[in-house]
């Protein structure tokens, strides 16, 4: 992998781009529900210390002006908003939780329907 999948300073998250830089809230939910505990924990551990710096950097630019690397970083952060519930809150209860969540469909989200400013 080349080193420019993500903005400078966030190379530590490059191994997670393929699995977690996902467009669409519903797709992010499905990814969480289909992931293994090991996948979730590895992503969470790597991303947790970078959430504040990533959002601080992304906040400097308009959402509509993100380049591909910034959009990937944004999508990684949005995936964290899903997967953190599994890792931090549900823990070993995640399989039970996922059973119910499989019946839920995200039909609209602010991130999807809203072009951003």
């Amino acid at each position: 992998m080349s080193g420019n999948l993500l903005p400078a300073g966030f190379q530590a998250l490059e191994p997670f781009v393929e699995g977690w830089a996902i467009e669409g809230s519903e797709n992010r939910l499905r990814r969480r529900l289909q992931s293994t505990p090991e996948e979730r924990e590895a992503f969470f551990e790597a991303a947790m210390p970078l959430v504040q710096p990533a959002l601080a950097q992304l906040d400097k630019k308009r959402l509509t002006e993100f380049d591909a690397a910034e959009q990937r970083l944004m999508n990684l952060m949005l995936s964290m908003a899903h997967v953190a519930h599994a890792v931090e809150v549900q823990r070993e209860d995640e399989p039970f939780h996922a059973e119910g969540a499989r019946h839920i469909t995200i039909t609209r989200s602010s991130a999807d329907s809203n072009p951003g400013l």
Binding site: S25, R28, L29, A54, L55, L58, D59, R62, L63, M74, M77, L78, A81, H82, H85, V89, Q90, H97, A101, I104, I106, S109, S110, A111, N114, P115, G116, L117
Partner: peptide, 21 residues
């Protein structure tokens, strides 16, 4: 209002996933 920055977009996604859980 629109998502006007990354943090707001992130906060809205988190709001939604919290209720969904």
């Amino acid at each position: 209002g629109e998502d006007d920055c990354a943090s707001r977009r992130f906060a809205r996604e988190f709001n939604m996933t919290t209720a969904l859980d």
